[in-house]
Amino acid sequence: MMQAIATTRLTVLRGTTTDAYGDEQDTDTAVATGIPASLTEQSRRVTTRDDPTPRIVRYAVARVTAGTDVRDQDRVRDERTGAIYIVDAVSSMANPAAAPDIRLDLRRTT
């Protein structure tokens, strides 16, 4: 059972192929569809020591039910908007009483 409130459904895309030039390309092979998820996009002001000019960086976070087969570098498609994200990190908090949701740190590609 998911603890966060689902705002959309996700499709997990996985796999690569090689094009005619020998370059690796992502495939749109769906390994799971209709996964309930809580998806939020946020922005943050960022500066670095090398470049003190503030920039706005957008990122997204999703939460899915524990046990969902999502891996680093998979892609997920928001079934509501069609937006595709790369999964940068998959994490979960330790909780001996309940299986916590899985957190996906996402980067939007489309």
Rank of each mutant, 00 (worst) to 15 (best):
M2R: 14
Q3L: 14
A4Y: 11
A4W: 07
I5E: 03
A6I: 05
T7Y: 02
T8I: 03
R9S: 12
L10F: 04
T11G: 03
V12A: 03
V12S: 07
R14C: 05
R14Y: 06
T18S: 13
Y21I: 02
G22K: 08
D26M: 11
D26A: 15
T27K: 11
T27Q: 13
D28G: 15
D28F: 09
D28R: 11
T29S: 10
V31R: 09
P36R: 04
A37R: 03
S38W: 05
E41M: 06
S43Y: 06
R45C: 01
V46S: 14
T48M: 06
R49Q: 10
D51A: 09
D51I: 08
P54M: 04
I56C: 04
V57G: 01
R58H: 13
A66E: 04
G67K: 03
G67Y: 06
D69A: 14
D69Y: 02
D69L: 11
V70D: 03
R71Y: 10
D72W: 07
R77D: 01
R80N: 08
T81R: 00
A83S: 07
I84M: 01
I84R: 08
V87I: 10
D88G: 14
A89N: 12
A89G: 08
S91T: 15
S91A: 15
S92P: 00
N95G: 13
A98N: 12
P100M: 09
I102T: 15
D105C: 05
R107N: 09
R108S: 05
T110K: 02
